Amino acid sequence: MDEKLKSIVLEHSDDIVKMWLEEVNNHKKSDYTATISDELFESTNREFVNVIFASLERQGLSSDMDDFSERLINLGWPLSYLTDGMQVFRRVITEFILSRSDQIDSEYFSKVLRKVDDWVDPVINRLVNEFSGSWEHIVSLQRVALQELSAPLIPVMDDITIMPLVGTIDTERAKLIMENLLDGVIKHNAEVVLIDITGVPVVDTMVAHHIIQAAEAVRLVGSRCILVGIRPEIAQTIVNLGIDLGKFPTKSSLRKGFKAALELTNRTIEETQTNVKDIENLVDSLNRE
C-alpha cells in the first residue's frame, strides 16, 4: 500500500502542486506575506514544493532543505511560513489520495493519515531544525557584533581616550565594559579615560556601582577616569540614591570633560586669531593654480 500511495502522489504531482499553490496563495492577502512581491512569493512557493517532492522521490531528506531554510532566513521570512505550508501540504495530499479511492472505510482512512504523517513529519522536523539552527547562528553572530560595539574605547589624543556608552547596562555588559576599558587603557597607554554616559537612559544603583568599579580599576592601573554626560535627572537620581561619585571627577558634557582631561595631561586649548586677508590671499592663489 505504501508504494501504491506514493505512486499516486508522484504521478499526480502537478495536480497536487496546483492545489497546494492555490491554498497558499489564498493566505497571502491576510498574513505576513502580504507585503512580499508576487514574483518572489511565487518563486519561493515553487522552490518549497519542489523541496518537498524531492524528499518523497529520493525516499529521504535532501540537502536542498538546508539551503532552502537558510535562504528563507536571509529573506527575513518567519518560521510559520514553513510550518503553515507543510500543514497545507498535509491536508492537500490527504484529500487528494482519498478522492482517488473508492475505499472510504475508517481503516483505509487511518492508513492514509499515518502514511502522510510519515512523509510530512520528517520534512517538517528537518526544515524547522535547520531553520532554527541557522537562525541561532545568525543571532549569535549579531550578539558578538553588538558586544564589540557596545563598549568601544576610542583614542582621541595622546594619553586621552573616550568610552561612549549607549543603552542599558546590565551585569554582562558591565563585565565587557570593564575588560575593554582595562585592555584599552594599557594598549593605548592612556593617562585619562573619559566615560561618557550621555546615551545611558537610566543610572540606578547597579549601574553606578559598575561605573565606580570601572573607575577604580582604571586608577589601579595608573590612569585617571572622568565621568561625563551627567544630565540633571541623572544627577538627581544619584543624589537620591546616596551614591558617592566623589572619588573621581564628573562633568556635565563631553566637551567639559575633554578640557579637564587636557589639564590633567598638562595641556590647554589656546585660541588663535586668523588673519582673514591671509586666508583670502591663500584661496586666490589656490584658484589660480
Rank of each mutant, 00 (worst) to 15 (best):
L5T: 04
L10C: 09
S13H: 09
M19A: 13
M19S: 11
L21R: 14
E22I: 13
N25H: 09
K29T: 15
T35H: 10
S37I: 02
F41R: 06
S43V: 11
N45L: 01
R46T: 06
E47H: 08
F48K: 04
I52R: 04
F53G: 02
F53Y: 12
L56E: 05
R58Y: 07
S63Q: 11
R71K: 13
L82S: 05
L82P: 00
G85D: 00
M86P: 00
M86D: 02
M86T: 05
R91K: 13
T94L: 07
S101L: 10
K111D: 11
L113T: 13
R114C: 05
V116E: 02
D117K: 06
D117N: 13
W119H: 01
V120E: 08
V123C: 07
I124M: 11
R126Q: 14
G133W: 12
Q142M: 12
A145W: 02
L149Y: 05
S150K: 04
P155G: 06
M157V: 08
T161K: 00
D170A: 04
K175E: 08
N180F: 07
G184T: 01
E191G: 15
V193L: 15
D196M: 09
V200E: 05
D204A: 04
D204C: 04
T205R: 14
M206D: 08
H210Y: 14
I211Q: 04
Q213I: 11
A215Q: 08
V218A: 08
L220G: 03
V221K: 04
S223A: 15
R224Y: 01
C225G: 01
V228F: 08
P232K: 10
I238K: 07
G242Q: 08
L245K: 08
L245V: 07
K251W: 02
L254I: 09
G257M: 03
F258M: 14
A260R: 03
T265L: 03
E270P: 00
I279E: 12
N287K: 14
